[in-house]
Design a binder for these strands. Structure first.
Lengths: 249, 249
DNA sequence: TAAATTACTGCAATATATTGCAAATAATTG
DNA sequence: CAATTATTTGCAATATATTGCAGTAATTTA
């Protein structure tokens, strides 16, 4: 019996019964307990189940995809998030797209700040649910498995009906000449609708994404009001952006 | 029985009844009171409940967030979920409301079953996102902090535009004379819209909820096509329901 | 206050975890 | 295809964790 096969059996047991015992599985599959223990250790570090003394149990409800993957450049994203938070005033209505930087912003919103947040992002919504004073309004629609945000006509229709104070628009690529671009057509449509739905557009972006261009265009730079990077506003790398009418933070 | 399992049973009891007695749980799980005491001490330092003389009590609703929700699936809910899954055919479009039983159903949907799922429930959507073959469509709207589902006009409008094959409707109270009832007005509205949006209504409910009534009415029993409980369909407790035109599973 | 219940402590029996190692198996390479 | 290398597996020895019990201290209840 292959290792992968065994692990599949284990996962299946956990899915159905919520738990497995090392000894049971070992007997069932006629391998040593050590082998099962090693399998379960592997599955555990892969976050497929939870290893406990004597066996394993299902991860259950809180198995958010997002918590599994490590966030790239988290330090920089936290710095961006800290700056972003300062733009939000009590009582405002804001709109947050997806992406890890926006997740960081959502995470850092003070729990006592009274605001209304629209978002098409599932992880952002989950994050915001824990803030007692934040009203969360979900933009519905078909969920993209990749980006975990609602896409499609339904989401766009819903966005067409609102006008918020600030939009924190996740950035994929930004360039002085080509403006904002992205590689996923569906997400481009959503982002366009989000821009339309907002009085003020804030673009949080790690500096790596500056001066890069993707296939599909979202908008020109003049639609963006504020660009937030982890750099100081005076940094040389931002000089090209300083020259256009763009506030840097 | 695993320690982790025991602790989940304890947390589950605390969630349902707001309190537990060492002696009760010890007898229920056939372990010594000392063991339960130690478990509860651990859970107490983990801030999952409050240890008191003779037992433990719930921390209260303020701490009752998504992250702290316990995954322990009452064996009964798993049984209901297993039965419910058999009703779903490949290619169908289904609608799932919130609640822990429906979470269990979502969790147990086989990863290779190709279906389209509509849901206004944030946790259900998160759960379904991990199923590669399931298309998830989120019903948007204002999120209720208590139930973690989208409520309000926007959600209802979205439901008005669809007609799905099966709806798994979370049940709060069900009674032969009073039909389906609930205590939250907003949720009643959503559930009414869900019923309207479905060809077939399946009501999964643990037997504890049978023959109870809440303040607001959702619908009469004749709207329900199938009632699933953890009991055998022939069980005496279900005799009242057998007499009306209701399929039992 | 006395009786009853519950809490805490240390201990022993059992179960589980960890580690290093060698044999068996699978994958890679020349 | 044979030789080499890497991975997987089972075993044994040791370490750690869990559990129930008994004795005693603390708390509640009447």
């Amino acid at each position: 019996m292959l290792k992968a096969e065994r692990q599949q059996v284990i996962l299946n047991e956990v899915r159905i019964h919520n738990r497995v015992l090392f000894t049971d599985i070992a007997e069932l599959l006629s391998v040593s307990v050590d082998t099962i223990r090693r399998d379960i250790t592997e599955l555990s570090v892969a976050k497929k189940l939870k290893k406990v003394h004597g066996g394993a149990i299902s991860l259950g409800f809180n198995n958010y995809q997002l918590e599994n993957q490590e966030i790239y450049a988290l330090e920089n994203k936290s710095r961006i998030a800290r700056k972003a938070i300062t733009l939000i005033k009590s009582g405002q209505v804001i709109l947050i797209s997806g992406g890890t930087t926006n997740m960081e912003i959502a995470r850092m919103i003070p729990p006592n700040l009274k605001i209304t947040c629209f978002t098409p992002s599932l992880p952002v919504a989950v994050q915001l649910m824990s803030k007692a004073e934040v009203d969360v309004i979900l933009i519905g629609g078909k969920l993209s498995k990749d980006s975990q945000i609602a896409i499609g006509g339904c989401a766009i229709n819903m966005l067409n009906d609102i006008k918020v104070d600030i939009c924190f628009l996740g950035i994929n690529s930004i360039d002085v000449n080509n403006g904002l671009t992205d590689f996923d057509w569906d997400i481009v449509q959503i982002k366009k609708a989000m821009i339309q739905a907002s009085k003020k557009i804030v673009a949080p972006s790690i500096s790596e994404k500056l001066n890069s261009t993707q296939r599909f265009k979202i908008c020109d730079l003049d639609k963006i009001d504020v660009l937030i990077t982890e750099l100081e506003p005076e940094d040389d790398k931002l000089s090209a952006f300083r020259e256009v009418n763009l506030k840097l933070l």
